[in-house]
Structure formats: C-alpha cells, structure tokens
Design a protein around this nucleic acid. Structure first.
Lengths: 220, 220
DNA sequence: GCCGAAATGCACCAAATGGGGTATACGGCC
DNA sequence: GGCCGTATACCCCATTTGGTGCATTTCGGC
C-alpha cells in the first residue's frame, strides 16, 4: 500500500437531499484532484440502485435526514451489500442519539456540515487510510457515551425517581397533563413538573421524543 | 356442575386505584348474596402479593390504569401464576388498542364502568359459567378488528400515502411542524395537514400516541 | 381532456405544551 | 437539629398543537 499517494483519485458518491448542498459538495470536492465524484443522489434509494450496476465508490458521503429511507438505514443496507464501501455521515445536526445509531449501522466517520471546506477535504481523504474522521464536537459525545457505558454497566436507567417512572409510562400512553393529574390524584401543574424533570434527565424536550426514547431504551 | 346455583358464593377480588370506585364496587357486589368480596387493592402489586398466601379468588376485577404495574401486565402475570383465576377488565375508557392487549394478556372479559349496576352484576356472575362478559361497545370493536385482520392478512399498514409515511418518520424523530416544513420544503400548515391525516388513519390524536403506535406497529 | 386522489397552502381558534420561577411538606441521612 | 432530595402546588408566558374549513395545484388513470 502507498498511503501517501493511493491508487489514483478517491472515488466518492454523495447522498444529500438539499440540492444546493449537494451541488456545493460536488464543486468543493471535485476541484481537488485527489477526489473524483462518481455520482450524487438526493435519495438513499438512488444510491442503492446505482451501486448495483456500477463499480463501487471508495467512499459514500451520507446525509442522515433524507426523504424516504434514512441515511442510517441506507448505511446499514450498504454494509450488508457492499461492506468495503466506507460510509461517512455528513450532517448538519449534532444529534446525540444518531451518532451511536449511525456508528452501529456501520458508519466509519461522522462529520458535521459546519466543518471548514479544507478540513472537510482532509477528513474525507483520511478515511481512505483507515482513518475515522470525527468532528471534535462529535468526538466529545462519544467519549461521554463511553464513560457513561463504562460506569453503570450500560444500564439505560437515567436516574428517574419512582414517581417519575410512573408518570413516564403514562406519558408514553399518550395522557395529557390533565389525565395524568386525575390518574395519580395530583394537580396538573405537578404532573407537568414531573414531566419537565423527566425531559431534563432524558435530555429531550417534547412528548414525541420522550415516547420514542422511552420505548427504544426499554424504559417501559 | 350446577350452573344455576354454583358451589357457594363467587369469590371476587378487586383491583382499582380510585378509592371511591373501589368502595362502591365492594358495596354494590357485596350486598348480593351470590358474591363474596375476598379482597380489594389499589395496586396490582398488592393483589399479586396477596394471592401468594391466600386461596385464589374465582374472579378478579381489574382496572387497566393503575399506579405502578398496569392492569394488563398484572393480568399477564396472573395468567402465569394462577391460570384458573378469571380476570375481568373493568375500565372507564373505550380504549381500542387496550382491548386486544388485555385479551392477549388473558382477560376473559372487558366491561365498561358505565355499565348499569344490575347488568354489571349479571356479567360478573356469567363469567363463572364460562361466559365472557363484553360490553356491547367493546364487542363492536372486536368485530371490527376481526374483519380488519381477515382481509389484509393482518398487515399493519394503514393506508398511508408515501408522503405521509415520510412525515410520520420525522414525527417519530420529534420534529415540530416548523422543522418538518424545513426538512420537506413545504409550508408548516401543510406539514400539519399531513399529520392530521395520519392521525385520522391511525386513529390517534397526539404526538405521543402517534410515536408509540408507529414504533409498536413497526411503521418506522 | 376530465376526474379524483394526493399534496399543498392559508386562516382562525381553543387547548395543550414547554419553560421559568417560587414555595411548602415530608423523610431520610449526617 | 439541619440538609437534601422528592413530591407537591401555583404563577406567568410564549409557542406548539389539534381541529376546521376552504382553495389551489399536481399527477396518474380513464
């Protein structure tokens, strides 16, 4: 292997639904001689279909939020069918939970879109040499996650009080503050207070998020 | 067997968190000579502990919404440990999804609390003779469910349009109308419209419910 | 070309929600 | 006794949400 030069230009495919961002990436990466844009798609399904009939690219830049199949799902599908393709998640959000999900799905890197163009370029190139480009912000999250998992034996517990656990279950059942109040014989304001505390502990801020997290983490 | 007389009074245990309702049931059922109230509890855990050390009752009247363990969970636990005990769900709500869940958990009947006292009494007594007291309203739901399952091969599909499916996924991700609008390049009002349509098709009316249903039915 | 379904957009409104603060009561622990 | 966490309750406020009704555009099928 020749890490310094590599066997010709790095072949890159892009999956990104925003046209401007997609075109911007094509231009930005394409003008560097070390990279060749093999194709770009606005939907993950497009990439998956294309890859069946074409030589596989070295790297896929994958957005997470896409119409239709999500970037994470697409990453998982790609690992199944084309395990040698390196998938780099490229997203604008610092979505705590998605980082782990993406990595479990087989992503080799997680780059934020606010990364400076030159740095972006280098991160992509580094991926070829078994590197894993991770934005600093993301790296921090990963460290925190590792620490968290290390101490409590990976128990998805959060430190909910018994009362909060009861309320959580009912929130998952779709109860409003008022119904919560009736069911537990407390004031609606108190029910709200409990829920707000749960929000803080689970690091969410809406009913939808709390329900999802509670179900996925097995809190109910 | 002597269906007309039975082997003495029917032994009934009650699990109901509302004190007034619980006492009301004790009075109502207790004054009929054919029934004997063995015990009553405000929490399912109480019943489960009690039943370990006492002769099992013929019938358990079980509320669904309880602090701590739910009535459905308790029903399932009871079927495990005391399979001969007949559990009748007694609840004030006509909760479509709970009916099936309760029956799967092993409930033998599903009675609504708005049932008239005399009818309630007869329904409970009928359960002893292999009857399954089901309130008419509930029976209707069951028929609909059977019809639904019969036609489409039990596929949990609902008839969502592709667009609605996309929106549903993002709602599960916790996006607000505003974020939905940005992500799909549509107006917030349109995002709302889609969600309202999904509500109708899934028969729910809140973010929390839609997220739960979507996850549990594998729509995401 | 017409029809209907799907998707889109907007207006209006009542209710629910999320977020902030303050305060009291109870129980266990140092 | 004093402290802290938990649960309780209430106040205010901006935003979001759920519900309706109506109108337009788009698109595939007949």
């Amino acid at each position: 292997m020749r890490p310094e030069a590599g066997p010709g230009p790095l072949s890159v495919a892009i999956v990104e639904d925003e046209r401007e961002v997609r075109e911007g990436l094509r231009y930005l990466l394409g003008r560097d001689g070390r990279i060749r844009i093999a194709a770009s798609f606005e939907k993950a399904e497009g990439l998956l279909a294309w890859i069946e009939a074409n030589p596989e690219p070295d790297i896929v830049l994958m957005d997470i939020h896409l119409p239709g199949m999500s970037g994470i799902e697409a990453t998982a599908a790609l690992r199944e069918r084309r395990p040698s393709v390196i998938v780099l998640i490229l997203t604008i959000f610092e979505e705590e939970d998605r980082i782990l999900a993406a990595i479990r799905a087989g992503a080799k890197g997680y780059i934020l879109k606010n990364t400076k163009p030159e740095a972006l370029l280098e991160q992509i190139l580094s991926a070829r040499d078994s590197g894993s480009p991770i934005s600093p912000t993301v790296a921090r999250r990963l460290l925190e996650e590792i620490q968290r998992g290390a101490r409590s034996g990976s128990a998805a517990d959060y430190e909910l009080t018994p009362r909060e656990r009861e309320v959580l279950r009912d929130v998952v059942d779709g109860l409003t503050y008022r119904e919560l109040a009736e069911r537990h014989h407390i004031a609606g304001a108190t029910a709200k207070k409990h829920i707000l505390h749960i929000y803080q502990k689970l690091n969410v801020s809406s009913r939808a998020e709390i329900v999802r997290k509670a179900i996925e983490e097995g809190l109910v």
